[in-house]
Design a binder for these strands. Structure first.
Lengths: 142, 142
DNA sequence: CAATAGTTTAGAATTATTATAATGTAGATT
DNA sequence: AATCTACATTATAATAATTCTAAACTATTG
C-alpha cells in the first residue's frame, strides 16, 4: 500500500471491510517514508497509542494475517522467539542486528542475484532469502 | 563431532560432564552418515527410544543449548513455530520444504559465494545464510 | 568415600500464538 | 433510516514451544 493513499478504498478493493481498527493499522504501517519492520507486539502498542484506546491482540493477529494474505505484508524469517513482518513485500534480503534485534532492508544493489544450481525433484522454488546477521564489532564471533 | 568417536572423551575435552543422557544424545546425533536436521521434539523421542527410558524435555533443551554453545550444533533460521538444529555446523545454506517441513542442506557448489556490498557502521557480519523455500510443483505460488 | 559442583528431573511459569463464543458493526436490503 | 446478515472485534481460554525452579541425583575431586 502506497503511503498517504485512501486506506478505506484500498481495503475495499481487496475485499477487506474498512473497520476503524484496520484503518488505524494502515495508518501506522503505511503513513511513513521508509519500510517498517515490526513484531505483533510493537504494532499493538503503536495502534493503541494512535487510537487512544486498546486494540485486542487477536484483532492485530487476524488483521496482520489478512494483510499478509492480500500481499500488504510479508513475514520475515528470523529464527527467533517471535515473528517479524515487513511492509516491503518485494523480494529482498535483510540484515538482522543481533544486539538490538532490529531488521534492516538490503537494497537490490547490495547483494548479487543468487543463482541456485540445485534442483529438488517435484518441487519449485517459492523464495530465496538471505539473512545477514550482524553484531557489535567488539563482540566474540558467533 | 565426528561419527563413531569416543563421545565420553569428546565431552570431557570441552568441559561437559559425560552423563548417560549426553552420551546417548551424541550417539543419536553423530553416529550417522549424513547431516541431521531436527527439532527438540524429534530428539526427545529418538533419545528416549535409544535409552529405553524417558528423558526429560528440560535436559534435552539444556544439552542442545550446551552443544550449540560448544559448536557441536547450529540453529537454523526458519520463521517457524519451532527451532531447527543441524549437526552440520559449517557455514552452509538450506532448502526448506514447506509441504513436509524438512530441511535439506545445500552444498557449497549449489550456490555461489555471496558478496555483500553494504556495510553497517560499528557492526561486523556474523553469518550469511540463504534459505530457499520450496513446495510442491502443483501448488499455488506463495 | 565424603564433599561439591554440575546435572537431571517433574512440574510450574512464561511467552507467542490460535481458538472460541459472545457482542459489535459495515454494508446491503428493505 | 430501521433491519438484516455476514464479517469483525473482543476478552478470555486453550495450545504449544520454551525457560525456570527447586529438589533429587551423579560425576569428579580430594
Amino acid at each position: 500500500m502506497p503511503k498517504n493513499c485512501n486506506f478505506i478504498e484500498k481495503l475495499r478493493e481487496v475485499g477487506l471491510r474498512p473497520t476503524k481498527q484496520r484503518i488505524k493499522m494502515c495508518e501506522v504501517l503505511y503513513n511513513r517514508e521508509d519500510t517498517f519492520h515490526f513484531t505483533i507486539n510493537d504494532l499493538v502498542k503503536m495502534i493503541s497509542e494512535e487510537m487512544n484506546e486498546k486494540i485486542s491482540l487477536a484483532t492485530v493477529y487476524n488483521t496482520v494475517h489478512a494483510f499478509e494474505k492480500k500481499g500488504y505484508l510479508k513475514e520475515i524469517s528470523i529464527n527467533s522467539d517471535k515473528s517479524y513482518f515487513d511492509t516491503n513485500t518485494s523480494a529482498h534480503h535483510h540484515f538482522f542486528d543481533e544486539d538490538t534485534h532490529q531488521l534492516i532492508d538490503c537494497d537490490k544493489s547490495d547483494i548479487d542475484k543468487i543463482n541456485i544450481r540445485k534442483n529438488i525433484t517435484g518441487k519449485k522454488i517459492n523464495s530465496v532469502e538471505v539473512l545477514v546477521r550482524v553484531a557489535s564489532d567488539n563482540q566474540t564471533q558467533k
